[in-house]
Design a protein around this nucleic acid. Sequence first.
RNA 1: GCCGCAUUCGUCUAGAGGCCUAGGACACCGCCCUCUCAAGGCGGAGAUCACCGGUUCGAAUCCGGUAUGCGGUACCA
Length: 503
Amino acid sequence: MTTRCRIAPSPTGPLHIGNARTALFNYLFARRTGGTFVLRIEDTDVARSTLEYERDILDNLHWLGITWDEGPEVAGLPARGPYGPYRQMERLPRYAEAAERLLSQGRAYPCYCTPEELAADRAAQEAAHRPPHYVGRCAALSAEQRRAREAEGRRPAIRFRVGQGSVVFDDIVRGRVEIETSALGGDLVIVRSDGLPLYHFTVVVDDAAMAITHVIRGEDHLSNTPKHILLFRALDADVPAFAHLPLLLNPDRTKVSKRKTQTAVADYRAQGFIAEAMVNYLALLGWSSGTEEEIFSLEQLAERFDLARVQSAGAIFDRERLEWLNGQWIRRLSDADLLGRLAPFLQAELEARRAEGRTVRQPSEEDLAALLPLVRERLPRLEAIGELAGFIFVEEIDLERDLLVPKRWDAATTREALLAVRRIVADVGAVSYEADELEPALRALAEERGWKAGDLFMAIRVAVTGRTAAPPLFDTLVALGYERTLVRLDAAVDLLAGAGASA
RNA sequence: GCCGCAUUCGUCUAGAGGCCUAGGACACCGCCCUCUCAAGGCGGAGAUCACCGGUUCGAAUCCGGUAUGCGGUACCA
């Protein structure tokens, strides 16, 4: 039997890390088992669903490399797969047909209860410390009673008879789960009075129609699974296997939420997390290989993934660990690849500086190639490129006089040193402006004047970059260029003007 | 309230009765490397395996109970 699994996002918000993780596990399961991965859009919550969210979800899944074998038409590309349509709002007749079938078999019935009646029931149950439970007011209405209510203009919802007994299933992650139907809250509404079908119903109708064999989803659906199983049976469909994944958690161990954790995949992407790291990290939330390796590409994950090795306890989303993995993956990227991914971030930084009224130089191919080795080990996120290397392309840097003077030095010494450095750079640069030439010359200067090389280099670093933390100095000077280095040294000396006389 | 699930270093996890005086990774601390920052190397600290009882020659691992946490309990998904 070939396996079929699916991800069924609701376009009521941007792609969420929790959904991304569920999508990933489904994708990996399908790849690993040689099965089919289906994407279905669950857009029956018309009040909250939007096309922009749908686009965000699809676009970011694509960015992560999570592709689907069957799904709706997107961006002008046709729908794929024999079980379409793959958007629930386009499948309304199927739900209506299924509901009709249950109705005609007496497994479902029209319910005319008003919201007020239901609220009153609930309030009474709560007051009596009873669990909320549909009282069954409409469960045994005669045809005549129904007509009377219709005559009043009441539009019925449709309720599914939950019946008695218990439902047992073997969850792939959690093992045997048994729940009494009496704990299900009574007969459940499957179609609202406005005619729109509800989630618990559509999910089952579609999983059955799309021949889904494995339902892999978040643990928050575990308690609802008996309802689904009852519906599968009532519809005379095969009940799929279930695997309930542990929840992603906020640091306080509640279900991950955007109030407490950054949840939109797009936001991580915008901050310069790369897809490889995101996928790797998400896979490790709830799954482990059983070995001590933990750096895995999507392809490697697809070779190793196994639902049997999925954890059953929830996992806190730890951004620090994600950043570490991100750095690992950035270091593994080829030059051309890294450059391509860095470009938009550098560009954004330069635009921002330009907007501040600064003079910005457009980096050439050579500039960028020279930059790469300097930054590659130093990027926790692509976005950090602006801070790390912006000074090379923005002519006006912010120089702080206090920062310019090394801890053990005074302003006069610093000024004198920078003046000397300026002469050496000018001399060396006139012949050959290379790191290999600059370093010995400047070390000799420090030696000759009895300065610690580190102090001298720090003064130069700040003069030229405006920062105390930067890529290696001599490579930085070369990347900056001969003229620009001299201009910045002059500017630093000017800033220190007056210090010479007093010292 | 009721039902369900879970519980190993701060965090992610390894662990399927003896290999566990519990392993790895992130974060943290120290040392090395070093022109700063990173990266890397080495080392350290950090878990009475939630608790209680049982089964067993032997339990982090099996069973029961308790506690705590989380999830579900909608004409949301």
